[in-house]
Design a protein around this nucleic acid. Structure first.
Lengths: 148, 148
DNA sequence: ATATCTGCAAAAGTTTTGCTAAAGT
DNA sequence: ACTTTAGCAAAACTTTTGCAGATAT
């Protein structure tokens, strides 16, 4: 019990250092949001993080979670699963192909299937998973954004 | 000019057939939305499709575009670029890895980088594109959804 | 004739923003 | 003291829904 508590103190101290290094203010809310977000492996939404943080800090607001999530994204502490969220993006190409995505302007360009060597899985996927298709997403900066 | 017009008539007739085969009512709006959506290679949002359809049918409503986009998605005529849109999904794992995504319940599971043979690009990417990272997305049904 | 679709407006869901008080440096 | 952040409420944006009239089969 004393050990558990000591470990927590170390974690908090490390996060405080990380904030200092990145020029971020250390706050209790930020620390809890960070700990909770990093502990969730199920790729949570901001709302899901909010629900869990609320159990520790009932007075926290959803806006604070959003702001901190954005801060962590900017700092590279968290990532978005999909670079181009926000609005539904449609694809009229129903054949197998891949995508080139600009992380800055969110432009998406098709890459023919044969532009990438066939995707090969090593070992086995989780039992019972039924594959429909797979696609490679190459994320980076398009020529225009790379210049800026 | 006469040829262009004949081609358009053929296209419309083919779409009418496709609707019949799938049990969808053929409507003028649906036909234009389909033609416009399929012609857009830039992975448009519903709003972007709406803006272009509006030039032909000024009275069309955004809700109609949304409804038809959904109809086309269900019919497999269009695809979503990202299966799990709607809300931002966070990923605390900033190391290179891949994802297994359930197209039904939107569960996302991490796959270690070495679970997939290295992604290799054949030929060259569009000039000036600066790659930050690439990831493989395996889309399908998770065990639980596959049973349902 | 009947079923489906459109357009509208309202509702629901997601994310951002402006502001003041509070907390951190 | 000064700067940044938290909390709140309102606004902005995206998507869905209910319904009456119009359109397609």
């Amino acid at each position: 019990m004393a050990i558990r508590k000591a470990e927590e103190l170390v974690r908090v101290a490390q996060f405080r250092d990380e904030c200092r290094r990145r020029g971020l203010t250390f706050t209790h809310q930020r620390q809890v949001i960070h700990r909770v977000a990093v502990s969730m492996t199920e790729h949570p939404t901001p709302e899901a993080i909010y629900e869990r943080v609320r159990r520790e800090i009932p007075s926290i607001s959803l806006a604070t979670v959003y702001k901190n999530v954005k801060t962590f994204l900017d700092a590279g502490i968290l990532r978005e699963v999909s670079v181009h969220h926000g609005s539904l993006r449609l694809d009229p190409n129903t054949a197998a192909h891949h995508h080139l995505v600009c992380s800055r302007c969110k432009t998406i360009v098709d890459l023919p299937e044969d532009a990438i060597e066939p995707v090969r899985v090593r070992g086995t996927l989780p039992l019972g998973f039924h594959v429909e298709r797979h696609a490679v997403e190459i994320v980076g900066l398009c020529a225009k954004c790379a210049r800026a």
